[in-house]
């Protein structure tokens, strides 16, 4: 299991255990934010790879 999947599962599980609506909301929102972090990380990594891959400068 990837690190991202583990974190997602833990956050969903923790949210389910919260009796308070607002607490449940917090952990679920954090899960969405983590997904956003993952997406941004992939995009940044992709852009770095793209900009570093410059055959014209080899």
């Amino acid at each position: 299991m990837t690190d991202d999947q583990w974190l997602h599962d833990q956050l969903q599980h923790l949210a389910r255990l919260q009796p308070k609506f607002t607490d449940r909301a917090f952990w679920l929102a954090l899960d969405r934010l983590v997904a956003e972090q993952d997406q941004r990380r992939e995009q940044l990594q992709g852009e770095i790879d793209g900009r570093t891959w410059r055959p014209d400068r080899w």
Partner: peptide, 17 residues
């Protein structure tokens, strides 16, 4: 553990940026 992992993600994003 979630808090630590979240912090790690945040730092790695900062580094990539």
């Amino acid at each position: 553990l979630i808090a630590t992992t979240f912090d790690d993600h945040r730092s790695s994003l900062d580094e990539l940026t």
